[in-house]
Amino acid sequence: KFNKELSVAGREIVTLPNLNDPQKKAFIFSLWDDPSQSANLLAEAKKLNDAQAPK
């Protein structure tokens, strides 16, 4: 279960257009550290992506 959630969340995070590479890497490392938090980490990444969207 975690492997699928981890890969789905990881793929989504790397495609978020408004995150820079260090931010993406930080989220990916957090996913590896605790795969059970993949849904929460993906939600946080999406929030940050939205907040950094060009206005």
Rank of each mutant, 00 (worst) to 15 (best):
D50A: 12
E44I: 12
F27E: 01
Q23C: 05
K47S: 10
S38H: 12
L16V: 00
K1A: 13
Q37T: 05
N49I: 01
F29M: 12
S36L: 06
K24Q: 01
L16D: 01
L19K: 00
K55H: 11
N40W: 14
Q37H: 05
N18P: 00
T15Q: 14
F2E: 10
A39C: 10
P35A: 04
K25Q: 13
D21Q: 09
Q52N: 05
P54F: 07
K25N: 10
S30G: 06
F29V: 06
L41N: 02
N49V: 00
K4R: 11
L19M: 01
P17S: 06
A51K: 10
K25V: 11
P54A: 07
S38R: 05
S7D: 09
Q23Y: 03
Q37I: 05
F2V: 11
S36I: 04
D50W: 07
A43G: 04
P35I: 03
A53S: 10
S7C: 15
A53T: 08
K1I: 14
P35W: 04
I13D: 00
D33Y: 10
D33T: 13
N3S: 12
L19V: 01
L42G: 01
A9I: 15
K1W: 15
G10Q: 14
L16K: 01
P35T: 03
N49C: 04
L16S: 02
N3D: 14
P54G: 09
L41C: 05
A45R: 01
Q52T: 03
A26R: 11
L48H: 02
G10A: 15
D34K: 05
P54H: 09
N18T: 01
L41R: 02
V14P: 02
K55A: 11
L48T: 04
K25A: 13
A26H: 11
K47P: 00
K47W: 08
A39M: 11
T15A: 14
N40V: 13
N20L: 10
V8F: 11
D21Y: 13
S38K: 07
V14E: 13
N40A: 13
P22H: 15
L19W: 01
S30N: 08
L19H: 01
K24D: 01
S30Y: 08
N3Y: 14
D33I: 13
A51D: 09
D21I: 11
D33K: 14
A43F: 08
A51Y: 09
N3W: 15
L19C: 03
N40C: 13
S7I: 14
S38T: 12
N18K: 02
L42C: 03
L31Q: 01
Q52C: 08
L6F: 07
K47E: 07
K4T: 12
N20H: 08
W32E: 07
A43R: 10
S7K: 07
L19I: 03
K1M: 14
K4L: 09
S36P: 04
A9W: 11
E5L: 12
F27Q: 00
S7T: 13
